[in-house]
């Protein structure tokens, strides 16, 4: 009886360990899914050269642009002024953020995408570096600069400068 009891107990323990392992596996898969829903990476994990999380982009931004590097500083200053009429970035329902594609008057959900060379792009689902993407050229939490991938769009708008509204100067 006792042996039987022990035997049953060991069997249950084994089953519980298997179930626990399965649950842990499912949990880790689920977490991985959350992670990759907002930041898609091409190929095996590549460390982004510029780390950005979607939630860091959500909020109000002053938006300005420049063509010549010499104009960068005063463009940043003007972007701060532009917080009087801010550009709003919303949180997407699928882990991305709500922003505009080039020349589209309605916003759409875009995603952070890391290319195999570590460059981070922001754009619709698909391979990093698509024509509708923008390349993130710098980000420090409060200042974001991007260049459109499409050369035609880039030559029209130049480098986009976004300064977080309400950030400490």
């Amino acid at each position: 009886m006792r042996i039987l009891t022990n035997s049953i107990s060991e069997g249950e323990g084994l089953r519980m360990r298997v179930l626990a392992a399965l649950a842990a596996g499912l949990l880790s898969l689920s977490l991985a899914g959350c992670n990759t829903s907002s930041v898609s990476r091409s190929g095996p994990s590549v460390a982004p050269l510029i780390a950005v999380a979607p939630n860091q982009l959500v909020g109000n931004w002053g938006l300005a642009s420049f063509q010549n590097a010499a104009d960068r500083e005063r463009t940043v200053a003007q972007a701060k002024v532009a917080c009087g009429n801010p550009y709003q970035v919303g949180a997407g329902s699928q882990g991305g953020v709500i922003m505009h594609l080039p020349d589209q008057s309605s916003p759409t959900e875009v995603f952070l995408k890391v290319a195999s060379d570590g460059q981070t792009y922001l754009g619709p689902r698909g391979a990093p570096g698509m024509r509708q993407d923008r390349l993130i050229t710098s980000f420090d939490g409060n200042l974001l600069t991007t260049d459109w991938v499409d050369p035609g769009i880039r030559s029209r708008y130049g480098t986009m400068v976004l300064v977080r509204c309400g950030a400490a100067a």
Partner: peptide
């Protein structure tokens, strides 16, 4: 102008001088 930003919210509120 503000009405243009309203129509095209993606436009920079300031564009430094240059071609285009």
């Amino acid at each position: 102008p503000a009405e243009m930003i309203q129509r095209q919210p993606y436009l920079p509120r300031f564009m430094a001088g240059g071609p285009g």
